[in-house]
């Protein structure tokens, strides 16, 4: 059964891909997270994560910052304001599909 309620309008295919939804959930809860911290939680390879991050960056939902610490380059990820809005709209759409009231 597919929901057609207008409150599901925030549904976003870019975010909905399972790993991308998880990346957005983590980044929405944090100010900034290191690539490897997200990778560890997702249990995926760096190339898989990199691919998902690229899609989110291209959509304007996520931004990357490179920093060198102890001679090692680290990539920090954070959500843009547009990304947070899209993620929250998407979660509201999922809640509407489930039949819960959105927050």
């Amino acid at each position: 059964m597919m929901a057609t309620d207008t409150s599901t309008n925030g549904f976003d295919q870019t975010i909905h891909a399972p790993n991308r939804l998880r990346i957005c959930a983590m980044l929405d809860a944090a100010t900034e997270a290191e690539f490897s911290a997200i990778q560890e939680r997702l249990q995926v390879s760096a190339s898989v994560l990199s691919k998902h991050v690229s899609v989110l960056v291209e959509a304007g939902y996520v931004q990357q910052r490179k920093a060198v610490r102890a001679t090692r380059q680290r990539v920090w990820l954070s959500m843009t304001a547009q990304g947070r809005r899209a993620y929250r709209d998407h979660v509201a759409a999922l809640r509407a599909i489930v039949g819960e009231d959105s927050e």
Binding site: M1, M2, A3, T8, N9, G10, F11, D12, Q13, T14, I15, H16, A17, R20, V55, A59, Q82, R85, A86, D89, L94, R95, I97, V98, G99
Partner: peptide
């Protein structure tokens, strides 16, 4: 931003169970 299609994903909505 509504119903964006990312990375060639089809615009199909999940069932309530999947959601």
């Amino acid at each position: 931003m509504e119903n964006s299609n990312g990375a060639g994903a089809p615009d199909t909505r999940p069932t309530p169970e999947e959601a």
